[in-house]
């Protein structure tokens, strides 16, 4: 049990420091590591990720569910700390350092350099999630509807997701053969 906890803390602590540009950048890596080292299938990963989509606040709080599943409430607590503390401590000190030295051209350069990397990694996140979420014409149509809904309307994304999710469930429930 203790070894599982240590393993979880190291895994999520590392992911915390690798999350350049936000949580989505580590989505693909998280799915892979949880599958290889903790036997969490990509399908289960996707379900937990979907629960996170419905949560208030940052969607990545869903990581605590993996901790809970693997090591109970202690696991949830430690995974939460491991995922949010290291990057926060780093940001805290860098923030103070930056106030001290003032703005330099290098900060902007670092941000410009990391931005396209993080977009590339977000594409990997979309790819990883999409590979298990899109399994036929119906789910592809749902995803495209959500894409359009988020990009071209001002509806809050959580309603888009809930509405389309419910629509998908209804179609599969009453018309399982369709699509």
């Amino acid at each position: 049990m203790v070894s599982v906890l240590i393993h979880l803390v190291l895994t999520f602590g590392t992911l915390s420091l690798l999350a350049v540009g936000g949580g989505t950048a580590v989505l693909a890596e998280m799915q892979e590591v949880l599958h290889q080292q903790f036997q969490i299938t990509p399908d289960r990963f996707l379900e937990v990720y979907s629960v996170g989509q419905l949560a208030p606040g940052p969607n990545m709080t869903m990581v605590v569910i993996f901790g809970f599943q693997l090591a109970g409430i202690m696991g949830a607590l430690l995974v939460g700390l491991a995922f949010f503390l290291p990057s926060s401590v780093l940001c805290f000190w860098i923030g103070r350092f930056w106030n001290y030295v003032g703005e330099t051209p290098w900060r902007r350069a670092v941000q410009n350099a990391l931005e396209p990397i993080s977009i590339g990694l977000m594409c990997s996140g979309v790819y990883a999630v999409g590979k298990s979420a899109l399994d036929g014409p119906l789910t592809i149509a749902l995803a495209m509807t959500a894409f359009m809904g988020v990009l071209f309307t001002r509806i809050n994304p959580v309603y888009v997701i809930l509405g389309i999710g419910t629509l998908g469930a209804a179609i599969k429930y009453w018309q399982p053969g369709l699509l």
């Binding site: 990720y49 931005e115 396209p116 594409c123 996140g125 979309v126 359009m148 999710g165 998908g168 599969k172």
Partner: peptide
């Protein structure tokens, strides 16, 4: 039913994630 709902949410979330990636990345 919960599984069906989550499957629908997952598909929609893929669309949302693509849209966010596009919105953040289109300048790149």
């Amino acid at each position: 039913l919960a599984n069906l709902l989550l499957a629908g949410v997952a598909a929609a979330a893929t669309g949302l994630l693509s849209a966010i990636t596009y919105r953040l990345g289109h300048r790149q």
